[in-house]
Design a protein around this nucleic acid. Structure first.
Lengths: 156, 156
DNA sequence: TATGAAAAGTAAACAGG
DNA sequence: CCTGTTTACTTTTCATA
């Protein structure tokens, strides 16, 4: 990925509804040129989509939690993400190094729904859980700092 | 927030670039009516912004980690978020219940940058760190499941 | 808070270098 | 891979119920 594309990606990461005309002005290209580049970035999956950033509390989901999970049977094939993919309260699923296998970020309306969700995760995921409740969110999902020059992996 | 607004929010959480015309068709309102509603949702902060969802690996940030932090001095006033806000590698900062005070989600190009980042966080945040490296991300930042009828907090 | 209409601006597709 | 043009669509504003 070249510098111009990184610039475009970085602008769209900050304002996902910026017009191609504005993008073009900011990066110094014609509207059609940025349009073509953005379409290519979308096709390659570098831009995976666009989302509105929602204030979860206002929308009825004031309770966020981080849940570490460990499978009951460490020897069994680990398809926990597949088994939990349909659980819509799980916003993020990370496979991690360390004592736990996965960390999940979940959002629910109330403690009661968290209790029910944990039961679902344990039953459906065949795993034990360790829950950390989020008390407040100073910030979340900020646009990441893109490296000036991306790291090149040497061949071989 | 009424049901119509929740519907609009939910659609924009899935496709942040959907046009007002399409939104109107899906929720059964005129273009100008949804336009007005979306502007109001933005003003109230219920829609906090729009972002492109970026594939971090392609963009030079293949390394994600979760860092739990505990202040060196538990008695000192806790302004860790303020002290770390300018550290741009920190994508999310959650204040949590439990043994740690905060959990941070960070993105960096390589292990070396993670090492440097940890030093920065410890020095600037005056805290100790416990790092969990993300090995893979089955999914992340999925649109949350909005409750059908939001929970009403009784007055008093 | 809704609608419909008008003006300005944008997206998408295309020709051509 | 760029620019510029064209057409259809969209955003934005406004008058009005």
């Amino acid at each position: 990925m070249e510098s111009l594309d990184r610039h475009i990606v970085s602008l769209l990461a900050q304002d996902g509804r910026m017009s191609f005309a504005d993008l073009g002005r900011q990066v110094g290209l014609s509207t059609s040129a940025v349009h073509q580049r953005v379409k290519r970035l979308e096709e390659r999956g570098i831009i995976a989509g666009y989302r509105a950033e929602v204030d979860h509390a206002s929308v009825g989901l004031p309770l966020t939690a981080l849940i570490s999970v460990v499978p009951f049977d460490a020897a069994a094939p680990d398809d926990i993400p597949d088994r939990l993919r349909n659980v819509e309260q799980i916003v993020s699923c990370w496979s991690v190094a360390g004592d736990e296998n996965y960390v999940l970020l979940v959002r629910v309306p109330r403690p009661q729904e968290l209790e029910e969700l944990l039961a679902t995760i344990r039953a459906q995921g065949q795993c034990s859980t360790n829950t950390t409740v989020v008390l407040s969110t100073p910030w979340e999902g900020r646009a990441a700092l893109l490296p000036e020059d991306p790291v090149v992996t040497p061949a071989g």
